[in-house]
Design a binder for these strands. Structure first.
Lengths: 141, 141
DNA sequence: CTTGCTCCTCTAGTCGCTAGAGGATTTAGG
DNA sequence: CCTAAATCCTCTAGCGACTAGAGGAGCAAG
């Protein structure tokens, strides 16, 4: 009797998701428990690998696991309207835009700080000065 | 005998750092333990409030508490060269630039996803399709 | 003097992993 | 066939930076 599927290390290599993280995804129910070999090892089939790639890509895009869970359940029921998936992506897009704006402001401030540091002493150091200032920003994430 | 300084709630309001977070900062040694009132309540003076503003601002800028700890110790010893503070800021600047680049790529992809969603069903939904693709990116933060 | 707010300490939980212990299994080489 | 190395298993604990809640004490206003 032969088993099919790749062991967790190979799945990790292919998906670029570390083995403990894969087990963690199984534990929290985002990835189904795969078949096991005679020696109790996980064997991942192509469907599992695709799901893992999906998760990884979504994580890369900054989606939280909760959102990914919703996205996956949509994927599992393909006859539903995609408004939910669209809404999730839109929310994320708004977050990303906000974050870019904040980071640009931050970048400007850091550049100012670094430029102002005349290699003197902390007493005159603008890095410290700038950080000591109470200065209004939007929230950063 | 009168005590001076504001209680933690007021400090929280002024600094926009929540009270439990302020206690946490004390616990991890980033904020010194303030004087206490007769009834064992923390009373924050202006120096404490300034330090708190410093921490908040630095957190807003995305500095980790470890980096902030270093920055604060520099501030506490102002006769040292500011090369260390400068280096910390430079590292952070590089991170921020990388992050902006990643987020811009992400934004483009999210826009593509959202635009492609024709309000149909999940089976044709590009949000899901896009996420299912295995697609090479730089690392996002 | 009582009501209700703030504050105290403490423990435990969050998220998304990561690290390590201690043991079983599988694979490659001799 | 046997051993050594690599991989895998489960389990517990830890990370950063908080956040939430229990259970109790202090304080200010009516």
């Amino acid at each position: 009797m032969s088993y099919q599927g790749v062991p967790i290390g190979e799945a990790a290599r292919q998906s670029e998701v570390k083995a403990p993280t894969i087990r963690y995804y199984e534990e929290i129910g985002i990835l189904p428990a795969p078949d096991r070999s005679g020696g109790n090892r996980r064997l991942y089939g192509t469907a599992d690998l695709r799901r893992l790639a999906f998760i990884r890509h979504a994580r890369e895009l900054g989606f939280e696991l909760g959102a990914i869970r919703t996205l996956l359940s949509l994927q599992d029921h393909p006859d539903q309207p995609c408004a939910t998936a669209d809404a999730i992506a839109r929310v994320r897009l708004a977050e990303v835009e906000q974050r870019i704006a904040n980071l640009k402001a931050l970048k400007a401030e850091l550049e100012r700080m670094v430029n102002a540091c005349a290699q003197g002493h902390v007493a005159q150091c603008q890095v410290i000065e700038t950080l000591a200032q109470h200065h209004q920003h939007g929230r950063l994430a």
